[in-house]
Design a protein around this nucleic acid. Sequence first.
DNA 1: GAGATGGTCCCCCTCTAGGGGGAGGATCGC
DNA 2: GCGATCCTCCCCCTAGAGGGGGACCATCTC
Lengths: 214, 214
Amino acid sequence: MIRVLIVDDHEVVRQGLRFVLGQEDGIEVVGECADGAHALAAIPALRPDVVLLDMVMPGMDGLAVLRELAGGPAVIVLASFLDDERVIEAVRLGALSYLSKTTAVDRVVEAVRAAAVGGSVLEAGTAALLIERVRQDRRRNPMDLLTPREREVLAELARGRSNAEIARSLRLGRETVKTHVSSILAKLGLADRTQAAIFGLQQGLIRLDEALDS
Amino acid sequence: MIRVLIVDDHEVVRQGLRFVLGQEDGIEVVGECADGAHALAAIPALRPDVVLLDMVMPGMDGLAVLRELAGGPAVIVLASFLDDERVIEAVRLGALSYLSKTTAVDRVVEAVRAAAVGGSVLEAGTAALLIERVRQDRRRNPMDLLTPREREVLAELARGRSNAEIARSLRLGRETVKTHVSSILAKLGLADRTQAAIFGLQQGLIRLDEALDS
DNA sequence: GAGATGGTCCCCCTCTAGGGGGAGGATCGC
DNA sequence: GCGATCCTCCCCCTAGAGGGGGACCATCTC
């Protein structure tokens, strides 16, 4: 008997999963939780073999639960979307399968049975993401090309500041700022400061909603 | 008997809703669809009184379906998140209720019964959003100040393009682009094209990850 | 008809931005 | 010590950006 714990903040999803898994031979749903904290508290008593874990939950999200669960029961992550970064991170943290909620329920059942013996069920989209990541790692993060000072200047660019403002902000001469900006453009292969600003935002140096403030 | 149609790409959600609603007196689930196009095709034959509509679906999403459904059956929108813009837009398009999937199933049943007689069930979060929107409308969206052509130019700015590139892209003279850029900066109170680009990204004219792509 | 608005293009002007150099000082590793 | 890297600042030069005008034409409104 495979003991399954369902962790999802959506009641309809929990009911759906319980209903589907309940009809399967050899699978028993031993509990369900609406958030990560309750799940971690309940696991010692429920002793599940497999945890079906929602990625997006209020409070403690799926990744946080995964971190705490290292070495415990097998985990299958259920997500509404295949968010690139989260897939990678979840797999790194030991998730066996990473399924979208759009997946046919048969696949979920399949993943549960596989997880009970340490196996994985990968969707086409997930597999593609993992491969893409390996590819990306080869053509390295362009940010590594920049010196610490250049990264500071790039962050200022991403805020929408002029050379003179950056000079004041970082206590530099305007000529020095120009030198850094030129290096940034050359190293990243960008045409002008506007493209640099966009790049900085894409890299998350500055949150989009906190740019332009001031 | 209230005839209900369930439209959601997640099979587990459909099963969950069918299970919950099926236990209610006076409610009958007459069908379920996995995407918007099938839903629109099936509605004339199924004649539902109430449509439970998922906001996020592949292909034709919830808003698109709502647009086509104007004047038809009552619609209750189900969403994973309370996305500000979508809530407003959905309500504007005639959705009676806008519920999060984290809502207790009792509320869904309540919303279905209300919708059958033209009523609404609002969650606290949704109500707050609507109030906030009314507040925002007072201090007006700055984008309304721009003409359609200026918005196009602003989108190009947000891509990181130069005046010459924008001119080629929009089939304009470079002087004309300069005129538009100047108007944009003046109307929005921004200092230069870099700030305009950031503003355009914040407004969602261009997705951050698709900026800079050539 | 007059007026307002939006779109297109032009001119002149100033100033910032950005490329291409040079150069001194600090730190680190060999 | 010596090379490498980084940070700082300077000069000259060109091209682009941005402000401030003006102009023509179309459409819509009153």
